[in-house]
């Protein structure tokens, strides 16, 4: 069976900045694939080339066997895009937005209306169909944004960080809709910098940093690849950057990075190394507020591979 998506050696620079430096991956039918990476990793740039919105400098994309370029309407038809930023008309109602975009895809009449009801149902907006979208909450706008991408029953749904800036409740609603779609066999390409989302939604995850895929696989295989290392999260106040540097020299510490008042330390065995880790904090004159030890997860994988915390 042909892959829903084949991305091969994709590159794109903006002047001197290499945003995407040679990315390759594939998505099988029915698979949910996650691109996990921090801000500026190149997720949106990759997606833009995959969706035929941006010319690539090198490499190729094919969607369901059709070559994607900025001009190929066939390949474009096979994807449904949910852009990172909202892409709906605030002065139109949800139903009017959907009707307009549906008609652009050649849908019309009763079948279009039926489909509009279906997708509104999927994202939980049926009862607000005739309200203008600028009267929606942020989370509802996001859900409408997703509904538009689903409308024409694409073979591949591409979602670019659909939960950014959304309250926890809406976020959960969005994740549930995506889960639902995925379980009904929709192929999904999902970008995020939230490890939990990638773990929850995606069959396979590609970890992207600085425009390159640094690792790829199922959650299990990625976690296994870093061995049995634990991650210790230390919440503290003081010069954490300096502490992270000191920690990297501590025996048993694989890597350490700080972000938002938390120092994350990848360590071979937390139980044994914890005293020397905490001692390092004390030596540096930094007071510790809380300590948490977690099982290996994708965040640890990212830290392990890049020496950076995922959320920066």
């Amino acid at each position: 069976m042909t892959n829903v998506l084949d991305v091969d050696g994709l590159k794109r620079s903006f002047d001197d900045l290499v945003a995407v430096g040679g990315v390759s991956f594939s998505i099988e039918p029915g698979e949910a694939y996650g691109l996990l990476g921090p801000n500026g990793a190149g997720k949106t740039t990759t997606i833009s080339m995959v969706a035929g919105l941006l010319e690539s400098d090198a490499g190729s994309v094919s969607v369901a066997g059709k070559l994607m370029t900025t001009k190929s309407s066939d390949a474009k038809r096979a994807i449904g895009l949910v852009p990172q930023d909202l892409a709906i008309y605030p002065d139109l109602t949800a139903a009017e937005n959907l009707k307009f975009f549906g008609s652009l895809y050649g849908m019309r009449g009763a079948s279009l209306n039926e489909r509009i009801m279906t997708v509104l149902e999927m994202v939980g907006l049926s009862d607000r169909a005739d309200d203008r979208s600028d009267e929606y909450s942020g989370g509802m706008k996001r859900r409408l944004n997703i509904a538009v991408g689903l409308l024409h029953e694409p073979q591949l749904l591409i979602l670019d960080e659909p939960t950014v800036g959304v309250d926890p409740q809406s976020r959960n609603a969005i994740l549930e809709s995506v889960e639902g779609l995925s379980s009904r066999g929709m192929s999904v390409l999902y970008t995020t910098h939230y490890m939990e989302e990638a773990e929850r939604l995606c069959d396979r995850v590609g970890i992207i940093d600085n425009g390159l895929l640094v690792a790829e696989g199922t959650r299990r295989s990625l976690v296994d690849s870093i061995g049995q290392d634990d991650t210790v999260h230390v919440t503290a106040t003081g010069n954490l950057h300096h502490v992270a540097e000191l920690l990297r020299a501590v025996e048993g510490v694989v890597t350490a990075a700080e972000a938002h008042g938390v120092v994350s330390v990848v360590v071979d065995r937390a139980a044994i190394r914890l005293p020397s880790i905490l001692a390092t904090f004390t030596e540096a004159g930094v007071s510790v507020v809380a300590v948490e030890v977690s099982e290996p997860n994708l965040e640890a994988v990212f830290l392990h591979l890049t020496g950076k915390a995922l959320r920066d």
Partner: peptide
């Protein structure tokens, strides 16, 4: 501004 330009392009509109 509405971000809909990308959507139009992704719908294959020139």
């Amino acid at each position: 501004r509405f971000g809909t330009w990308d959507r139009l392009m992704s719908a294959g509109v020139s």
